[in-house]
Amino acid sequence: MKILIVEDDQVIREGVSEYLKEFRYSVEEAADGKEALEKFDSSIDLVILDIQIPYINGLDVLKEIRKKSELPILILTAFSDEEYKIDAFTNLADGYIEKPFSLPLLKVRVDSLIKKYSGSAEKFEYNDTEVNFTSYTAKLRGKEVDMNAKELEILKYLLENQGQALTRSQIIDNVWKETDEIPFDRVIDVYIKELRKKLELDCIVTIRNVGYKLERK
């Protein structure tokens, strides 16, 4: 999972960054609102956003991100003033933490938001690919692609565990039902090959001697 930390206080920013990296989160840092918008792209899974930052304030950064994405955004604020909180939630923030805060508490909030959003994913968008897991449909550059149901179920499982290396056995245990005929684990390689080919998904990475993981580039 990739997190964008937007905070002008270098000590706080680097402290949060190093702490989250210990738990295998990938981190991007921005010291002001302008840099935040420059670094924000489809590879980001969550934003930790301070309100009082130079050039473009945090609430305006929030508004700009919401024009293009519904990903989780956690607001950092030193203010107890309700107006800032109301403003943040009006612009669809997913929560706030007041400074000073503890790093373990921040991590709990981050873990919770990541789980909430990735665990309930019904759509997947990556580069020119669009997948709807409710209707079991997929498009590449706007054109429908004929997909096998198990291919999409594997993709969804990878998405729900984004950033984690999954073994072939884990994929089989979580995608195949008890009533299904259980395949040999190497069959997963065939499904992954088809997903990459049909939907041009270079975000499905092979982990040697382990299995696969989904990691947006």
Rank of each mutant, 00 (worst) to 15 (best):
A31E: 15
I65C: 03
E22H: 10
I192K: 07
L195Q: 01
K115S: 15
A165K: 11
N132V: 03
Y136Q: 13
E18A: 15
D81G: 13
Y136R: 10
K21A: 10
E215V: 07
I154T: 04
N57E: 05
K34N: 07
K115W: 06
L59G: 01
S26T: 14
D185R: 13
I51V: 13
E70N: 13
R24V: 00
I114Q: 10
A93V: 08
V145P: 01
E122C: 01
V131D: 05
E22N: 12
I182F: 08
T137H: 10
A93R: 03
K34D: 09
I51C: 06
S118M: 15
P72R: 00
V110S: 04
S43C: 07
G15C: 10
S43R: 11
R141E: 11
E38L: 09
A138Y: 04
D111L: 11
D8S: 12
T179S: 15
R109T: 08
I188G: 02
Y25L: 03
S169T: 12
E18K: 15
K2N: 14
V175P: 02
E200F: 03
E64N: 10
K67V: 08
K67N: 14
L105T: 10
A88M: 05
R13Y: 05
E14G: 01
T134Q: 05
K198L: 12
K116Q: 11
K177H: 09
L49P: 00
L20R: 05
K198I: 08
K143H: 11
R186F: 11
L20K: 06
I44N: 06
A30C: 02
L158Q: 00
K2S: 04
T77W: 02
A138F: 06
K21D: 05
A165P: 07
G211A: 04
C203S: 14
L152Y: 02
R208A: 09
R186M: 10
D81N: 15
G33N: 04
F79D: 14
I114S: 07
Q164N: 13
S118Y: 15
I154F: 00
E35M: 09
A149L: 11
I86T: 10
V190L: 08
Y96T: 07
E22A: 10
K39R: 13
R186K: 13
L113T: 01
D94H: 14
I51E: 01
E18P: 03
K115V: 06
E38A: 08
A121Y: 03
S120C: 01
L71A: 08
F23I: 02
L140M: 04
T179M: 09
K123S: 12
E151D: 12
L49V: 05
V108Q: 13
S17H: 02
A165Y: 07
E144R: 04
A149R: 12
I51L: 14
Y117H: 12
D173Y: 09
N209W: 01
Y25E: 01
K177V: 01
F133E: 02
K177M: 11
I65P: 00
W176T: 02
Y96D: 11
E22C: 09
N127G: 02
K123D: 10
K115E: 15
E125W: 07
K39M: 09
L103G: 07
D60P: 03
L103R: 06
E178T: 09
L74W: 00
S17W: 02
D202Y: 03
K107W: 03
